[in-house]
């Protein structure tokens, strides 16, 4: 496999339009084919530092982003997501083609990776210590995640925490960060280093755009980390930052509510969740200012590397 930015755009486009490319993201390999130029262009930009192969080989997921029929190419154009030849979602308007790829890949991971305990969370790491930010959509976790990843924190994921059984280590799967609505401008203003892809309007989540994951996070994606802090973030405009400790019991239940497969794993899920909570300090975190938030986590993460 080669870094995508070492393959010419033309070769990449030829491969993805024909038999597809194999894209490596963390522990997963995805075979992806599409003929849609905007998807190809956004992939080439946002996954520039990921490894890909244009040769055939094993893949965990086989995805295709395509237009449903000849008719729908012209009349209210639509786009479909196919997974192993099935189309699990209704088609979306054609301009949302790149979004359906990212959402579809999230869906594949959260539905088919039960070798991990999976939480709906952003995860970042510093000094070998991982911080888990579980949160419902709109809680401000992706914005915080983007800002931390642009401030010398290593991005593991902005969407799914993957926790290995036995070791309870977090597995890194850095992919583009999905920014929504005002967050897009907030992150552009926060750092000139943010590389942001095409803006997609009128999705079910509003306006969205994806931020390229930092190079170092992608290059170190085979390095795992120990969970140290669980912080449930909540963005409240104008609020003063507050970091309130949660009891282990409260944190346990809140984390279960944010898990993709806690119930599926049964007793194994309970045991893994118990160990995770034992290992972590747990907080409710409210903020309105990203710099304040970054200072807070810089101050509470242990300075001593693991």
């Amino acid at each position: 496999m080669t870094r995508l930015n070492q393959i010419s755009y033309d070769n990449f486009e030829d491969a993805i339009r024909s038999s597809g490319i194999r894209l490596r993201t963390g522990p997963f390999t995805t075979n992806l084919s599409t003929k849609l130029r905007d998807v190809i262009h956004n992939l080439y930009l946002l996954y520039a530092d990921h490894t890909v192969s244009i040769e055939p080989g094993f893949s965990d997921f086989h995805l295709k982003i395509h237009q449903p029929s000849f008719f729908r190419r012209w009349y209210h154009p639509q786009v479909n997501f196919s997974f192993d030849g099935l189309t699990p979602f209704n088609p979306l308007p054609r301009p949302q083609a790149y979004a359906i790829f990212e959402w579809g890949l999230n869906w594949c991971i959260s539905n088919y990776s039960h070798q991990y305990l999976m939480l709906h969370s952003a995860v970042l790491e510093k000094n070998g210590h991982a911080v888990i930010f579980p949160g419902a959509p709109g809680a401000g976790k992706s914005t915080l995640c983007a800002a931390l990843s642009l401030s010398e924190w290593r991005l593991f994921s902005d969407e799914v925490a993957l926790i290995e059984p036995v070791s309870n280590n977090l597995v890194s799967n850095p992919r583009p960060i999905s920014l929504k609505n005002k967050s897009i401008e907030i992150i552009k203003a926060f750092s000139g280093e943010a590389i942001i892809g095409k803006t997609i309007y009128d999705t079910s989540k509003g306006t969205i755009a994806h931020m390229q994951p930092p190079v170092e996070s992608v290059h170190r994606s085979n390095e795992k980390a120990k969970p140290k802090i669980i912080a449930f973030p909540k963005f409240i405009p104008g609020a003063k930052k507050s970091l309130i400790p949660l009891t282990k019991g409260e944190a346990f239940i809140k984390l279960c509510e944010n898990a993709f497969n806690y119930s599926t794993l049964g007793l194994k899920g309970f045991d893994m969740m118990s160990e995770l909570i034992d290992q972590c300090d747990c907080y409710q975190f409210e903020y309105s200012d990203l710099n304040d938030a970054i200072d807070t986590f810089n101050s509470i993460v242990p300075q001593k590397p693991l």
Binding site: T247, K248, G249, F252, C256, F270, S274
Partner: peptide, 24 residues
């Protein structure tokens, strides 16, 4: 009943294998 307790906490977590539910 599978229990998770912490020495400094009055709260206890129960995982009940009968229906797979977790309770605080």
């Amino acid at each position: 009943f599978h229990w998770k307790k912490w020495p400094d906490s009055d709260a206890v977590i129960l995982y009940f294998s009968g229906n797979g539910d977790t309770h605080l």
